[in-house]
Design a protein around this nucleic acid. Structure first.
Lengths: 144, 144
DNA sequence: ATGGGATTTCAAGTGCACTTGAAGTCAATA
DNA sequence: TATTGACTTCAAGTGCACTTGAAATCCCAT
């Protein structure tokens, strides 16, 4: 009642069991207790999977998440981990926010477009929208 | 002087020539003029690639971008395309913005964490941060 | 006219994040 | 006790977005 097997965890977390095993294999999740071979999870795994899912949906790779959770020397206290992670990741996250906001504006500006052909959107009335939205031409750190 | 071959386009757009060919093959870019086999591009391709790159960096898939640019019946005027795209994509983009903003706050909250072990961040002082940041547990449309 | 670099096509390879399949084991129910 | 469904491992497969390699062709400078 207190412990869950992988199927129950999968259902509650909204993540396939196969992905949970993959996360464990990738070092994102600690190895759970076993009962005659079956994985038994405590409730904290749901919180951990929530963190993992949030980070994945934001575009963090599995390896990056591993570093966040377990990639520091074990004597590194959480505050130091958070500082390092924040220093590394805040710029990328802010770039994501900027670009998504830009894309949103692009769509909204498109709503008032009066072009006759879609090609015109690149050369006429809508021209400048992309530039306006994304002034730079330089590569942005693709957070993917 | 007015027309560019693929290498020059690649350099100016910051996109590998191989990717430009791939975009053409995928129907994102129209087939350019040819001079004895070589692709010759007009300057508008840079604008088009800028749109493509912006969309890609925001997480749109190649197929989605194809639909935006060329996936409508040819008698569909741009305003209708924009409306359809906005209706379909604004929610996803807004979700990205919400989650990225949440992740940013999570990192910032982490900066004031006083946990002794990283596991504590899931159970003690930092607890609730993820929930606070990502109230729901339901699947969000993963925009990748 | 010749060598070097840019380009062509086509097929195959890559990396990530999983997913699927096979063959076997375990737990709960009839 | 027998079946059914959930679970196990391990290897292989998948989908996306490109990238790389090979062999041929083309442009330009010497």
């Amino acid at each position: 009642m207190e412990n869950l097997n992988i199927g129950q965890v999968a259902r509650r977390a909204g993540i396939p069991a196969s992905a949970i095993r993959y996360y464990e294999e990738s070092g994102l999740l600690p190895q759970p207790a076993r009962q005659s071979g079956w994985r038994r999870y405590g409730p904290e795994v749901l919180q951990q999977l929530l963190v993992i899912r949030t980070a994945r949906e934001l575009g963090f790779g599995v390896e990056e998440i591993r570093v966040l959770l377990h990639g520091f020397p074990s004597d590194t206290a959480p505050p130091a981990r958070w500082r390092k992670l924040a220093a590394e990741k805040l710029p990328a996250i802010e770039a994501v926010i900027r670009r998504a906001t830009a894309m949103k504006r692009m769509l909204q500006i498109g709503l008032s477009c009066r072009c006759v052909q879609i090609e015109d959107c690149f050369t006429e009335d809508c021209a400048g929208v992309v530039q306006e939205v994304r002034g730079d031409r330089k590569a942005l750190p693709v957070m993917q």
